[in-house]
Amino acid sequence: MTQPRKVRLMDAGQMAETVQRLAAEIMARYPAGSDMGIIGIRTRGDHLSRRIAGIIRAELGSAVKLGTVDVTFHRDDFRTRLPSPQVGPSDIPFGVDDLPLVLVDDVLYTGRTVRAAINSIMDFGRPASIELAVLVDRGGRELPVQADYLGLAHAAAANEHIQVRLEEVDGSDEVLLLEYGG
């Protein structure tokens, strides 16, 4: 198998700026004193949500509620999918009823993961609203889902893969565009 062609869409500095901007946009919507929750989608959305919540906590001094959701059990391709990252427990240590929530993921593609995450959160209660923050929107939607807070839009072709690498799991911060032959 030939190696894919790599293009860097975001380096560590640009990622830090982008995460900072996403946090600022969320703070503009939910100023100090607002009650809200941030929920990351396992695995990389979880780490991004921690960074965003960290910035908001530091700037506003407010206790942003932070949770994580694993969508494996809610996927619509249970029997046909490729093996995916290991399933872990969802952890939403607060009541979601009547609370505005921001869902965080690294890449928005078909929208199916977001759909599964929304369904999963609904099993915990009835939030006031759910918004979506993503680092990269690569297009290719199969469901009517869009991001409310967007880091970078990059329309990728079907033979291209967006790889978000994070310090916490991959050892470095960057976004790569991998182009496979064909």
């Binding site: 494996t72 427990p89 099993d123 209660g125």
Partner: peptide, 16 residues
């Protein structure tokens, strides 16, 4: 252990 968490949710059911 992961399913123990599901059993603690208000809705203890997943569509898997």
């Amino acid at each position: 252990f992961t399913f123990r968490e599901v059993l603690d949710r208000p809705i203890k059911k997943v569509p898997t």
